[in-house]
């Protein structure tokens, strides 16, 4: 199943750092998503794009994870050569990640 079936997401940018949220629709899925979508897994998924560390922060009361990805925007919005300088489209890629949720 794609992550998109149970969660939604938005990307933000600051300098050369991109942050992508993963927010579950049903709070009951939060722990499962937390156990499945780890910082390491997101770093591996975006390895061609994200050159720095990926840290994960938790906002349990709104069922959200926040992945903060360093050195992710080709040097930053003002000087990146990428077509999507802000990385706005990264959330859509993350939502297409295939996940296998334990019951």
């Amino acid at each position: 199943m794609k992550l998109k079936e149970i969660a939604h997401s938005r990307t933000g940018d600051k300098g050369n750092i991109s942050n992508v949220s993963v927010i579950v629709y049903e709070m009951g899925d939060y722990e499962k998503v937390k156990n499945t979508v780890t910082a390491d897994r997101v770093k591996e998924y975006f390895q061609e794009i994200v050159k720095g560390d990926v840290k994960r922060y938790e906002l349990p009361k709104i069922g959200a994870l926040n992945f903060v990805m360093e050195n992710a925007l080709g040097g930053g919005v003002t000087r990146s050569l990428a077509i999507d300088r802000h990385g706005k489209s990264l959330s859509s890629a993350l939502m297409d990640m295939e996940i296998d949720l334990p019951d």
């Binding site: 938005r10 940018d13 927010i23 922060y57 959200a64 926040n66």
Partner: peptide
């Protein structure tokens, strides 16, 4: 859902 997305938008450590 719209509010949650914007809370996490462009923040690092919440």
């Amino acid at each position: 859902a719209t509010v949650k997305e914007q809370i996490v938008y462009e923040i690092h450590d919440p």
